[in-house]
Design a binder for these strands. Structure first.
Lengths: 330, 330
DNA sequence: CGAGGTGCGTTCAGCGTTGAACTACGGCGG
DNA sequence: CCGCCGTAGTTCAACGCTGAACGCACCTCG
């Protein structure tokens, strides 16, 4: 059962292949009766366009690549879910890859090596530097997401996401409003401004400063990654070190889930004794006992915006483009 | 900056395009010195093959589509993560789509409409029937996964996964061994043998029968979907109905998370008063307080097997292919 | 009545790659 | 000396589609 081609449909109807092509694509001039007959033949023969040929000719593939550190992280899974849906609504198909947070893979993704030709790339990098960005050779339209990407945006490469510092400040202020003064920050990472966690730490710092609460380095816990295990280990460390704390701001929900786990294991009452706030609004957070208060990053807005930037009418824009966020108090 | 083509490399080196093609693909006869010069020119010019043209010519695209109900479900996110990694190791790229559990989208995916040409399809259907499978026109190699898919396998279309009934029996037996006799089953769905949940219910039934425990219909809770909200609502209903139970077998972990949430809200001690067992071994399950006992479906084995069936040396095989599972007691 | 639309459709070339078929040449056995 | 083989390439066409350019009626208007 060989594939049905334009030529087969054309022969059946008795017109040229180009006319069939015009019907399929809605281009050129085709009279109503001819269009009807072509459509009928298409349905009858089960014709489906060969996207490879179409791409070879037109240069567009209808494919958009999404590269995240790992789909196992619920935040990225939810982002991917939302993005795939939004892209489909615009006729694009999404191709998913994972960087595993390694620089080598990230560099390869930046050049879109080992991938079919794509119309755009949405990238959540963790290890890239501004130099890496400057050295990029690929001309595939790129949109950065994630807090680390914010520092990599340029005139030609936009970054989309909420203002992380402001959101982190809101989260921390929420804890302060509830009377917490010894607020641990989990997810801190020292180093230059581009490093992951720096921006959220900045918001944490601002909230404390505004409330006149001194910054205690003992309350800052560094992590290697933003997952449950690290969040769990961080709280384990705080408890082992005998650090007093009545609140925890976790730089993402996965860290918060790990933190809540360890607090639970040690029978620390939440939120009576220690209040926890996360960041990302993972679905799961609403089903914990007690549920997790967190920052909702407004995925639906972001995904639409990203598509506008890649294949829509905002192509070519650069710089950081802020999206609305809000606190989900539970 | 126009794209570098085979012809550009060929001109640079002073050979034919076909020779460059041979070097790139490792085909035909090329002497060592020529190969060296070609490789040098490729690196220098930054040549990268045009996959559209390659596909147009060879018929293969290197793309494999994965269709799951939703990436928001942690099980599917983890499966996707594992699958993307396994596929990359074999040089294939994965394109992810979501069916949202609607029959319409599933039918469309079955024919791989609205997708670029793909070399294979991995599909976790929820609503398809055997008639739908029989009516399939697309010739793209297909592998089914998920419990519902098991009933749809045929001579030409394989299904990969653990023996759901046996695994469910193991999970239920685990509860029985701990002295539980009033074991609720959440995820039950009546109807014909192909319907989701039927197979896991069968395992539950067998375990009870083997232990001489009567089957109480009051303990069976039907759900519309396998997510936290439904699991939560199911336990809510059991409690509201005043049904006595000391164990719960949830047909997947998401249901179990929802169930645990509601048990927690109602201050029911777990596992002292009610023991819960899930199915899927979602990462998150290990970080709950207390952690969730569950069935590990061995994703790594499955993904490798699936790729063998799609693009490897087991192409063409059909029928149900069982994979090992094991109980993770926590 | 001829110049210039306008509606409908055609022909042609070529996107970049690769399978099949072909050439060229040195060595080697009969 | 001839035919044949193995090595190292080349040439050519075609994969299925679409942009550009070009008919060719028919109609309108100065």
């Amino acid at each position: 059962m060989a594939r049905v081609r334009l030529a087969d449909v054309a022969e059946r109807v008795g017109v040229s292949t180009k006319t069939v092509s015009n019907v399929v694509n809605g281009t050129g001039w085709v009279s109503a009766p001819v269009r009807e007959r072509v459509l009928a033949a298409i349905a009858e023969l089960g014709y489906r366009p060969n996207l490879a040929a179409r791409q070879l000719r037109s240069g567009r593939s209808g494919l958009i690549a999404l590269c995240v550190p790992s789909l196992r992280e619920p935040y990225f899974a939810e982002f991917a879910s939302e993005f795939v849906t939004a892209a489909e609504a615009r006729g694009a198909t999404v191709l998913v890859t994972q960087s595993k947070g390694t620089r080598e893979v990230e560099l390869s993704m930046l050049e879109s090596e080992d991938l079919p030709a794509i119309d755009g790339l949405v990238f959540s990098p963790l290890r890239l530097t501004r130099e890496d960005m400057a050295a990029r050779r690929s001309t595939v339209p790129l949109v950065l997401i994630g807090e680390h990407g914010e520092g990599l945006a340029s005139d030609t490469v936009p970054h989309v996401g909420p203002d992380n510092a402001a959101a982190a400040e809101t989260a921390t202020r929420h804890l302060i409003k509830q009377g917490r003064t010894r607020i641990a920050a989990i997810g801190f990472q020292p180093g230059d401004g581009g490093s992951t966690g720096h921006v959220r730490f900045e918001g944490y710092r601002r909230a404390l400063a505004a409330a006149g609460i001194p910054l205690d380095p003992a309350l800052l816990v560094e992590v290697d990654a933003y997952n449950r295990a690290e969040g769990s280990a961080a709280v384990e460390q705080l408890l082992a070190d005998g650090v007093a704390f009545d609140g925890v701001f976790c730089f993402n929900d996965s860290l918060a889930f790990g933190a809540l786990y360890t607090l639970g294991v040690h029978r620390v009452p939440v939120p009576e004794r220690v209040a926890v706030v996360g960041y990302d609004n993972i679905e799961e957070g609403g089903f914990l006992v007690p549920p997790l208060t967190t920052i909702d990053p407004g995925l639906a807005t972001s995904t639409g915006l990203i598509l506008d930037l890649l294949v829509g009418d905002r192509r070519g824009e650069g710089g950081h483009i802020g999206t609305p966020f809000h606190l989900v108090a539970r």
